[in-house]
Nucleic acid binder design. Sequence first.
DNA 1: TTCATTTTATGACTTTAATCATAAAACAGC
DNA 2: GCTGTTTTATGATTAAAGTCATAAAATGAA
Lengths: 198, 198
Amino acid sequence: MIAPELLEKYGALKKSFDKNEIIFEEGNLPTHYYQIISGQVKMSNYNDDGREFIQGIFYKEQSFGEPPLFLNQKYPANAIAVDDSEVLLLPKNNFLKLLEENPAISLKIIENLAQRLYYKSVMAAEMSTQEPEHRVLKLIDHGIAYFNFKKDANGYHINFTRQQIGDLTGLRVETVIRTIKALEKKGLLKIINRKVYR
Amino acid sequence: MIAPELLEKYGALKKSFDKNEIIFEEGNLPTHYYQIISGQVKMSNYNDDGREFIQGIFYKEQSFGEPPLFLNQKYPANAIAVDDSEVLLLPKNNFLKLLEENPAISLKIIENLAQRLYYKSVMAAEMSTQEPEHRVLKLIDHGIAYFNFKKDANGYHINFTRQQIGDLTGLRVETVIRTIKALEKKGLLKIINRKVYR
DNA sequence: TTCATTTTATGACTTTAATCATAAAACAGC
DNA sequence: GCTGTTTTATGATTAAAGTCATAAAATGAA
């Protein structure tokens, strides 16, 4: 996260996106640095027959879509508002100037990219070799650490739909539903009127 | 890549690893920055029943294992020499000092992490939603751009074993062998005495 | 040059998640 | 409050990759 005041000093502008509105599209060249003020944004791909894979979900104070910005490459995925969201947009050149003039920010960017690479490494290993129960549990446990799940009397409330869990783990909804039930039976999580807790 | 002279100025030492020797292990805390002088290194995970997933393969002048270094987290995978290899090791604190005193290097690190994140994004989407032919082809095409495949009269020589392709895509050897044959039949690649070309 | 190991290969079969069909409950918009 | 959509749910069936067995070719080490 970069302080909003600093971003604004370099010319960042606030933009609002409605729920399900596209922020940028796969295949386009990056033009801005994006940082969320409020709401949530997902980055995802659609394969040939319309099946979705969610690369990640981002919340307030988080940035997204930087890698292609540094590489002059096309976006490998779409960014879509999951809820009504407000986002700060800083044009690429201003962003690079900001980095140059504020070396401490570079370390923040590095740490952020390192964190995301870490998540992708863990999930890639899970998704390639582990069975559904393992995959779902790993996603949930990662989510507790890095997504904004709230803890209450029942434990952490995993506020993802079964479909979202499927799209994040590469499983189908039905499989996720069955897997979650199996995990509950094993006592690894709780289902309280359809909500999942851990 | 950071210039070897600069690394040595900050106290980096050269270390040799035999083929199949472990450089560092999953679960350990990072102590050094690693940059390859010669040979090749893979980062990989083994799941509960011994199945391997290769996170990536790295060659001369490339660094590996940085993310946990920036996050003070444990390594999410093992680093193993694929061939006899020489690696420059720079202790963590010296590396951070180097970064601090050479701001231009930070941008290099950022670009490198961005590149790896880009690869992982593309492969994650493939691995979760696409059929084997698509997955193998994507890996090969990515490899042409970023691994050191050599081009000759037959095209790019994909010098991965079927097993390695399987470990990189989450498929079993037999499936890779059959998939490659199917891709050859479709004219998407060539097999010339067991070697794969594209 | 020989021998052990790795890599590629192929067929038969099995398992597991995907698919398909259907429906109830919950939620959101009007 | 009604209605359309989304989410959760369950059972039956299918397809596709995994598994198992076996072997030839290639490679590398002694």
